[in-house]
Write a protein that binds this DNA or RNA. Structure first.
Length: 568
RNA sequence: UGGGCCGUGGCCAAGCGGUAAGGCAACGGGUUUUGAUCCCGUCAUUCCCAGGUUCGAUCCCUGGCGGCCCAGCCA
């Protein structure tokens, strides 16, 4: 994958790894893992973690495991596992034969638990969940020991065995580790490591009625795989002492080093599986892969590219500081990538009929390259005809200053075509709506002939009315109306800030005919408008649907906005 | 004095005791048959604050202040 430029500074994890390699730690090996729980789709925040874990291994000649942390069957499913696999692959990373599940280790994990019991470091606690909670103490007060803390090793062994055999009901007992109920770190107050959960697991079926918890599973899974650097987000820093304790008190094969970094937060969206799940469940978006979602599958459908996302992850850096990244950082990466990769085509989203009255009835063909600076894209012929469509926004009856497009009596260049002049505006007598523009063209101004002395300030896109194909186009905007939908002081629910205009569907769009062959995953630039792609789910050959990935940078919009504010 | 983590421009982020990289954004200008792209320029006398150590501190020490995380049989 993209190796870091040697001149770019190392982030703090790279510094640790570099030092470890120099010190000969782990025989100079680097083994990382990406450990998602299969309880939702991966989002842009996960992309950061994926890029860090796989990226670091790539960079230092190491290896990365994709490991599903599937210890809570009540929330997890194969559907999610599959989507995660797709997402990581799509992002551009591979794991060869290193796909694992924590559930692969259930037998070994059970043995490690038995080992802790035998060492008198774990006990079966028969308190009710509320009692455990009550006895855990608070942030400021220590907890109290469980009355079951001193059960004999034999009794613990028997009970744990019975739990495994399904002889007890959900919640009747748990296995706890014996550390310190007075620890200032609540995670160390005899945390639960196994609970009874009579739920069938999407991989192990009904084999188990007890499932290990994260703190016990994760460190040992890391150790079993020989992970050297176990990278996770900041909220797990408090769990590190427990991570180390479990490894220190079992015969674990090795002792990986846990390092925490801050997770990614993005303006105008949410990066929490719980909240995204809520949006999906309540039908506020159309599924996990809705193009407005910050999920990798949503971004893919929207037209974001893996390389743009990787570049973004690279630019935002890796630190322990809370960060809140502006959308523009991501969108710039998408635009930079798409600018190079996209053929330019013409598409009129909100058509306005233009009739060129002095144009002959015979069609002409205009040469139009597909890319402004890369010849490899080639070119196509565009039919130029008497009747065509232009964008409604490209005509104004009473335009403000610096409006370089069409206006009554004004001239504009039709891209790759002729310069036309607006002679008359035809309205619907009923509604007063402008329906047609009567124009004339200047035959001396044919594109590419170089004969034209005439210079005109504006160039607009167009499509021949008789040759255009119809399509639906979906315009997407930010999902929320505020930068931080979860951080408002009034304590409002984040869903109250959903942007009602996050999706705008245009049904009557007119596209140049070359687009008939567009395939999903192929980016296009609709000139002067933005980057678009075929919707991979909904588009059909007889009903084309395009998604707007991102607009072009629009300095006219800024001028307009400034004008509007000046008027106020 | 519960514990942990963190404070460098609007948003990220280098910096590791020798006098504030880079990216995004913003703002000016140039090229342009996409108001795109591209190019050029501007943008922290100062690093949360206050003391201290030092010839010298964003970096070290002390004390404040501010933010985030933790009381699931979730991960």
């Amino acid at each position: 994958m993209d190796k870091k430029d040697h001149s770019s500074p190392l982030n703090f994890i790279q510094q640790i790894i570099t030092a470890d390699i120099e010190a000969g730690k782990n025989q100079g090996q680097i083994i990382t893992r990406f450990p998602p729980e299969p309880n939702g789709f991966l989002h842009i925040g996960h992309a950061k973690s994926i890029c860090i874990n796989f990226g670091l291994a790539n960079q230092y000649g190491g290896k990365t495991y994709l490991r599903f942390d599937d210890t809570n069957p009540s929330k997890e499913s194969k559907e999610y596992t599959d989507s995660i696999i797709d997402s990581v692959k799509w992002l551009g990373f591979g794991w060869e034969n290193r796909l694992r599940h924590a559930s692969d280790y259930f037998d070994q994990l059970y043995e490690f638990a038995v080992q802790l019991i035998k060492r008198n470091k774990a006990y079966v606690c028969s308190l009710k969940p509320e009692e455990i909670k009550a006895q855990r103490g608070t942030l400021k007060e220590p907890g109290v020991n469980s009355p079951y803390r001193d059960r004999s090793v034999t009794e613990n062994l028997e009970l744990f065995e019975e739990m495994k055999l399904g002889k007890h009901e959900n919640g009747a007992h748990v296995l706890r580790v014996k550390i310190d109920m007075a620890s200032p770190n609540i995670n160390m107050r005899d945390p639960v490591i196994y609970r009874i959960l009579k739920v069938s697991h999407h991989r192990t079926g009904d084999k188990w009625g007890i499932y290990p918890l994260y703190d016990f599973t994760h460190c040992l899974s890391d150790a079993i795989e020989g992970i050297t650097h176990s990278l996770c987000s900041l909220e797990f820093a408090d769990h590190r002492p427990l991570y180390d304790w479990v490894l220190d008190n079992t015969d674990s094969p090795c002792h990986p080093q846990q390092i925490e970094f801050s997770r990614l937060a993005l303006h105008y969206t949410v990066t929490s599986k719980r909240k995204l799940n809520e949006l999906v469940d309540t039908g506020l978006v159309n599924g996990w892969d809705d193009p407005r979602m910050p999920t990798l599958m949503g971004m893919r459908r929207r037209g974001y590219t893996p390389s743009a996302i990787r570049e973004f992850c690279d630019r935002i850096g890796v630190t322990k500081k809370e960060n809140y990244i502006e959308m523009s950082a991501l969108e710039t990466c998408v635009r930079e990538d798409l600018d190079q990769k996209s053929p330019r085509v013409m598409a009129v989203l909100q058509p306005l009929k233009v009739i060129i009255e002095n144009f002959p009835d015979k069609d002409e063909e205009m040469d139009a390259p597909f890319h402004p600076y890369n010849d490899i894209f080639g070119s196509r012929k565009l039919p130029f005809t008497k009747e065509l469509y232009i964008e409604q926004d490209d005509f104004m009856e009473d335009p403000p200053k610096k409006f370089f497009r069409l206006k009554p009596g004004g001239e504009v260049r039709l891209r790759y075509g002729y310069i036309i002049k607006c002679e008359a505006v035809i309205r619907d007598p009923q509604t007063g709506e402008i329906v047609t523009l009567k124009c004339s063209y200047d035959p001396e101004t044919r594109s590419g002939t170089g004969t034209s002395i005439k210079k005109v300030k504006g160039t607009i896109h167009w499509v021949s009315a008789s040759h255009a194909i119809d399509a639906e186009v979906r315009l997407y905007d930010r999902l929320f109306t505020v930068a931080n939908p979860t951080g408002n002081k009034e304590g409002k629910d984040f869903k109250e800030f959903l942007n009602p205009e996050s999706m705008k569907i245009l049904k009557n769009c007119k596209l140049e005919k070359s687009l008939i062959e567009a395939k999903s995953e192929e980016p296009f630039q609709f000139e002067r408008q933005g980057y678009f792609c075929v919707d991979r789910n909904d588009s059909k050959p007889d009903h084309l649907i395009f998604n707007r990935t991102v607009t072009l940078r629009d300095s006219w919009a800024k001028i307009e906005k400034a004008n509007r504010q000046q008027k106020k």
